[in-house]
Design a protein around this nucleic acid. Sequence first.
DNA 1: CTCCCGTTGCACACTGGTGTGCAGTCTACT
DNA 2: AGTAGACTGCACACCAGTGTGCAACGGGAG
Lengths: 205, 205
Amino acid sequence: MCNNGVVPTESSRVRSMNETRDRILDVALDVLGENPDAGMGDIASAAGVVRRTVYGHFPSRLDLVRTLTERAVTEVTAVLTEVNASGAEADAAWVEFIARVWPVAHRYRVLLALRRGEYGEAIHGLLGPVDELLADLVKRGQDSDVFAQHLPAGILSQVAYGVVFAIADSDLSNGTLGARAATITSLLMLGVPETRAIALVGDQP
Amino acid sequence: MCNNGVVPTESSRVRSMNETRDRILDVALDVLGENPDAGMGDIASAAGVVRRTVYGHFPSRLDLVRTLTERAVTEVTAVLTEVNASGAEADAAWVEFIARVWPVAHRYRVLLALRRGEYGEAIHGLLGPVDELLADLVKRGQDSDVFAQHLPAGILSQVAYGVVFAIADSDLSNGTLGARAATITSLLMLGVPETRAIALVGDQP
DNA sequence: CTCCCGTTGCACACTGGTGTGCAGTCTACT
DNA sequence: AGTAGACTGCACACCAGTGTGCAACGGGAG
């Protein structure tokens, strides 16, 4: 055998299949991002494929959404653990986290809308680990007195990341303005003084 | 004639009709608040009435939502103009605004979810006046240097009131905790220092 | 060349919500 | 007593989306 662990056989076959599968997922993010109520037909058309084919890859609409959510969780978790382990001060870590998670949040902003109504429970369940890591970071900031303690870490982290998603979902999500706005705003609401907040984002524009 | 300007005739008739109409509207807020995708049937049942009757008062689902939105706009505008005219400092005015608008925001939180998808345009149109008044208040605060200027007033006001609605929509919307959280958080993100913010909400708990 | 298999295009049944029509009932006003 | 009108209960047509079945087609793998 000429392979080294991964399946090389059917190379072109399964590769083109995975291509369409990935294309469906990618385009589903765009389409659902514009209209969370878009149907499988809309997604299929946008992916240059027939509705029947989409059902070939994802037996039901829920499967598609679930896969999308799992993707998002994976990406966000990767960034979050890395930032959490960097040993930087909590506020600086937060700035880096937002900067790196911003494109991801923008791409997956649709999950915010999908979070209520029909798929809410499924998405909420998948998002558990992310919530924990987020709360850890905020807790660390509160313990070292760089974040305010007017709210418990669990809630404060939820509100803060809610704001980031809200801005990512709003009109100003394009360009760097959105990222700056989200970073400064979330820092302020975490209790970081304005001067310090602006200094921090100045470092990473 | 025995009336003084308003129609007294058909008193009991139209009154009981308005009662059911108002009851439908009230219960629609509750039902849609729990599930924005609830159908006319669900609303009708919850209102103790038949689906056909709802269509008697509101020819289409859009009419119902529009009426709900108009109600919300009226109530919020009333509070906002009153607070805006009180002549208080902008941050204090903001605190009073949130305190008084909180029950309203909580009741009408469903409009946040309904704002996208199908009715988004209609709702957005109705909300125009509110946005302006809100921006005025924030602008006043920025001009008198009690609010931060890291974002233009139009955007900052949108983000701030978005956060208030987000908290009103979240799990901690019940009790006074939600109101406190929303007030402090929005003050912080408006650039009010933490000590000042806590002092302000201490005045009006 | 032949087979496999992803894809296509069409078919269908099913669900759930919307909006309408109409005859009937009950009740407050005349 | 009679009537207007709000409400009911049932009917219907309509639409949009979901999920499935199946006979082709077409290109890469054996």
